[in-house]
Nucleic acid binder design. Structure first.
Length: 473
RNA sequence: CGGGGCGUAGCGCAGCCCGGUUAGCGCGCCUGCUUUGGGAGCAGGAGGUCCCGAGUUCGAAUCUCGGCGCCCCGACCA
């Protein structure tokens, strides 16, 4: 098996190597596209299961809308089409004939969904309409990267018409994303809202969770938009309220994608390969029996089966009793695949009625008695989940700087890089200039922003609180 | 779209400048034996449109021209 490039040597090669070695994905024969392999797809399925449960628990239902969107639909919302048209794939032929109207392959589904909502919503009694769909979308990106940005990707997109103002719904979803990122992915995030420049095409306001990767760049991990009445107006979706008045419907849309898998990789993995948080690891525990000779082999295989009796309900595990690989080889393989805990069981352990637990995140080996081993494993999984989060949070905090001097900012954004809390006057001019001169962008205006008087880092005009700036993916 | 790199066995590469045996090496794969507490050893074996096309030549992986594809770095973006 090939080795993984060290992070310090070449971060982006490291990232690709981790994915290849763990067999999460592979490059497809189509430029910019990837094949998500079973190991990677299993992570996506876990992500789906958890998020889907959270959406349903807040009253959302799943549905499915078409892949193709008539060109005229795309053009109904001005900002929206301007934002997305350049990156759309368009179908011009079908059945061997030129189509009368080109069909866009969905880059996102607002337009076709709101075209339907027009028919489905007439009265306030039809609200709220809370729909989510799990789907693939296509965006013709210039430069792609496995999981982080591919031409086609998988995601969920929620499209809701709340009873009134969409603000509460948009914020509620962002809170779901934050909870998911922190509690399941063990990835600390900064929730906040986007600047005018960075917000979604067609939105009134865009909310985001921003995470820091190990190369200290920011990654937008999820977004939720308050669309106001923009799409309702574009698609003429109105309802009659309790007073008999016609009103435009309020809207939200929100999504997370397979990009989360990229975020997971870049938050926790190390030079040995993938590191997964237990709550999202498709395989949480691997048991490797160790033997010498045929007679011992049978004994150890049997012992491994007995040891794991009753584990099924508590953890997902596997006994690796392949005879054609030696223990050391297996240790390495499961490490590159990110399995949180390895259990080693050899003749010496049998004699002492014990087993050895090895945690993936630290490499620490812990000898435990076979009695109560399952409890130990459960505790250890919790501990790994927690300490991955703590480690990531410490890393982020250690690379978050409060800066008031532009020259210092320019220097530090290059080395070491990170999140920068800066004062900003709120003008588009300064935001553009910041990006032009430093490649950094304003990632978000955090919810927990503290009121603080200061001067814009760029122009010196008054500012009343700090925003987060960073180089981003 | 600009800059850089690369296309030779499943993977990673050498060979190419300076054309000439049967195109080689490592890993992996198959068979057998010995092994098995951190990527095993020995023996035997299978596997190739040398990215594609044209040209030069007695002869092209190698030289010339044209094309295609991929990766990395920048401008657009979840």
């Amino acid at each position: 098996m090939a080795r993984i490039t060290k992070r310090s040597e070449d971060y982006s090669r490291w990232y690709t190597d981790v994915i290849m070695q763990a067999q999460l994905a592979d490059y497809a024969p189509v430029k910019g596209c990837m094949v998500i392999r079973p190991n990677g797809y299993a992570i996506w399925e876990k992500i789906q299961r958890v998020l889907d449960g959270m959406f349903k628990a807040t009253g959302h239902e799943n549905a499915y809308f078409p892949l193709f969107i008539p060109e005229s639909f795309m053009k109904k919302e001005a900002e929206h089409v301007e934002g997305f048209a350049p990156e759309c794939a368009v179908v011009t032929h079908g059945g061997g004939k030129k189509l009368e109207e080109p069909l866009y392959v969905r880059p996102t589904s607002e337009t076709i969904i709101w075209a339907m909502y027009k028919d489905w919503i007439q009265s306030y009694r039809d609200l709220p309409l809370l729909i989510n769909q799990w789907a693939n979308v296509v965006r013709w990106e210039m430069r792609t990267r496995l999981f982080l940005r591919t031409t086609e990707f998988l995601w969920q997109e929620g499209h809701t018409a709340p009873e009134a103002e969409a603000e509460e719904e948009a914020r509620k979803i962002l809170e779901i994303y934050r909870t998911f990122a922190e509690e399941y992915m063990a990835m600390p995030v900064i929730p906040g809202y986007k600047t005018e420049k960075e917000k979604f095409a067609g939105a009134v306001r865009t909310y985001t969770i921003e995470a820091m990767m190990q190369d200290r760049r920011a990654l937008q991990a999820g977004t939720s938009h308050n669309l106001g009445q923009n799409f309702a107006k574009a698609f003429d979706v109105t309802y009659q309220d309790e007073n008999g008045e016609q009103q435009y419907v309020w809207a939200t849309s929100w999504g997370v994608s397979t990009r989360l898998i990229g975020a997971l990789i870049m938050t926790h993995s190390d030079d040995q390969g993938l590191v997964l948080p237990p709550k999202l690891a498709p395989l949480q525990v691997v048991v490797v029996p160790i033997w010498r000779g045929d007679e011992e082999m049978e004994r150890l295989k049997q012992a491994a089966r007995e040891l794991t009796k009753g584990w099924d309900e508590a953890v997902t595990f596997k006994i690796d009793d392949r005879e054609n690989y030696r223990p050391g080889w297996k240790f390495n393989e499961w490490e590159t695949r990110g399995v949180p805990i390895r259990v080693e069981l050899g003749p010496r352990d049998l004699e002492n009625n014990q087993a050895v637990l090895v945690r993936r995140d630290t490499g620490e080996k812990i000898t435990v008695s076979q009695e109560g081993i399952l409890e130990e494993i459960k505790k250890l999984l919790d501990d790994i989940q927690r300490s991955l989060f703590e480690r990531a949070r410490k890393y982020r905090d250690d690379h978050t700087f409060v800066v008031d001097d532009y020259e210092e900012f320019k220097k530090k954004i290059e080395e070491p890089g990170g999140f920068f809390k800066i004062h900003w006057c709120g003008s588009r001019e300064c935001e553009d200039r910041l990006q032009e001169e430093t490649k950094a962008t304003i990632r978000c205006i955090p919810f927990d922003q503290e009121p603080e008087e200061g001067k814009c880092l760029l122009c010196g005009k008054p500012s009343h609180g700090r925003v987060v700036a960073a180089k981003a993916y």
